[in-house]
Simulated scan of single mutants.
Amino acid sequence: MTLEIKNLTKQYNKQKTGLSDFSIRIDKGILGLLGPNGAGKSTLMKIIATISKPTGGTVFLNGEDIVKKPDTIRKTLGYLPQDFGVYPNLNAYEFLEYIAAMKGVGGSGLRKRIDMLLDGVNLTADAKRPIGSYSGGMKQRIGIAQTLLNDPKVLIFDEPTVGLDPEERVRFRELISEMASDAIVILSSHIVSDIETIADDVAIMKNGTLIDKAVPSELIRRIENRVFETSIAHSDLELFKAKHLVINTSRQVEKIQIRYISSSSEAEPGAKKVTAGLEDVYLFLTQSQH
């Protein structure tokens, strides 16, 4: 199964461009989408989910043009938008049965599948309570469950871990990892660690364009031997930022602890080299020369 996205453009108006000549190939497994607000991640996912139409370019699923034939992907799609809404008076069982009917999912195995999904998102104990009484994290988990109802082969998650506590985020990652061997999973998150933990490939976006796409370890190699930590005086911070990309600062009584990416592989006097991570390369690619 392959998604081939070719020269995708989305122009909202003269001032606002969502995507600009965007091309990418997505195979089975988990693709993590990273990018600042306004990078075009949600626009891309809405077009793949056939909720929005591009201004130019197209998307092929196994060679079929889904812009012209949206039903090609809709029957095999699971989509969790960022602004997922629920019916507050329904309980979890009623809600999932309603969504299943809308998706054309039925049969004798439906109740068993709903039970399995509620267990997977840790909602079995609360399944008979009205969804309106759920916390934000619980509503997000019922959203994840509805995404998986039709055993989809293309899964799109837009900020799925918002509102989830650390334990729930781990459960979500385990649930998605199990499905990724037989499906295309596109996962957008501003939590870089969620992407780093499970993504097979990472695509980094900015201003509606693709900056880079590779496996996480290959992306991290882009800045190997250039990430350092050091302590400097408070008064030296602005001068330091003019020379290097500062990733993180931690204020201490007399000094500031800094993690930075050097403009070369040379360290500042007194700095120590540290292991680079995906967050370092993400900030480097989105905040430096690009």
Rank of each mutant, 00 (worst) to 15 (best):
N37R: 11
N13R: 07
D115L: 10
T43V: 12
L155C: 01
F172Q: 04
I186L: 09
V281E: 12
E254P: 00
S42E: 01
L31E: 03
K6T: 14
Q140C: 07
D21C: 11
F228T: 07
R251Y: 13
V246M: 05
L77Y: 03
I48E: 09
D200N: 15
E174F: 02
F172V: 04
D115Y: 07
N89C: 00
V59Y: 09
A276R: 06
A203Q: 12
E94F: 11
S133A: 08
K272A: 11
P269H: 07
K213V: 15
T230A: 08
S188N: 15
Q15W: 03
L96S: 08
I261Y: 13
V202L: 12
N150Y: 10
G137K: 09
S263K: 13
K206H: 12
I24S: 03
L123M: 07
A125K: 15
I156V: 13
Q82C: 02
G29D: 10
Y134H: 00
D21Q: 14
A203K: 12
Q11H: 14
S189C: 12
S108A: 14
F157Y: 15
L80A: 04
T2N: 15
E97P: 00
I5D: 01
Q287K: 15
L80E: 03
L117H: 04
R129P: 01
F240V: 06
P160D: 04
L123E: 06
H190D: 04
R171G: 01
D65A: 06
E196R: 08
D200T: 05
G277Y: 02
T55M: 07
V227K: 09
I211C: 06
L77G: 08
L245I: 10
Y282V: 06
V246W: 04
L285G: 05
G120V: 05
I48A: 11
K69C: 02
G137V: 06
T286E: 12
D71A: 09
I142Q: 00
L187A: 01
G109V: 06
K103E: 10
T275G: 12
G143W: 05
G56S: 12
L155K: 00
Q11K: 15
M138A: 05
T249W: 10
L164C: 08
G143K: 03
D158C: 01
R129K: 15
K16Q: 08
D158V: 02
K153Q: 08
